[in-house]
Amino acid sequence: MATPRVLIVDDERNIRLTLKGALEAIGLEADAVFQGEEALQKLSDSRYDAMLLDLRLPGMDGLTVLRQVTARYPQTRVIIITAYGTVEAILEAMQLGAVDFLQKPFEPPEVREIVSRALDRPEGGPLAFSYDEYLGLAQKSIAQKKFSAAFVYAHKAILVDPHRPEAFNILGGLYENRDQRKEALTHYQVAVKIDPAYGPAQQNLRRLNTKPYTKSGIVWG
């Protein structure tokens, strides 16, 4: 199998250089460009297995680039980079086909782990990860108290397969954690509707509807 090729799109030269260095250090082939148009040019010239895409770019913005990439090069696994921790922007990118995300500031091991994880999938494109894999990532993030990341992965899992209860249950728990009880209730109910036999969602629903209410004891699944 050919050496995996990664395209780095970031307007910051130093980020481009360090990312390139970090990936090349583990034997990947990496190209770096500073804007969207150039990236699309590169993609039309040659195959890339993965793409690290900054959402903030001069000229054509990251999301537009993402749309075009997923439409034209479905094999490329797009990982977005963001310095802004807004979950909404990441969610939108994930909906548009990004498979994972990197939040600044990151360290080489983190970059390598996420990129390798994406490249390891036999499938390319937006569906590189399975529902269960996203579910696993969400659970792992919850364990590390990275609730925003868990939120993103759970959403992505639902995008992959909206007919399973676990991700809805996790989302319910995350909403409850944020004191958004109505949202939590809706998600638990969806989980139970999908699978009436799914225990964690039932337990969570029961607790949510019990008076007096307590947040402690969310069953994540």
Partner: peptide, 21 residues
């Protein structure tokens, strides 16, 4: 804080990689 993250990332990445190699 957000804007600081990009240069911090570059420095962090550079230093880490220097330490590695």
């Amino acid at each position: 804080s957000h804007e600081l993250r990009t240069p911090l990332t570059s420095i962090g990445m550079s230093v880490s990689m220097l330490k590695e190699s």
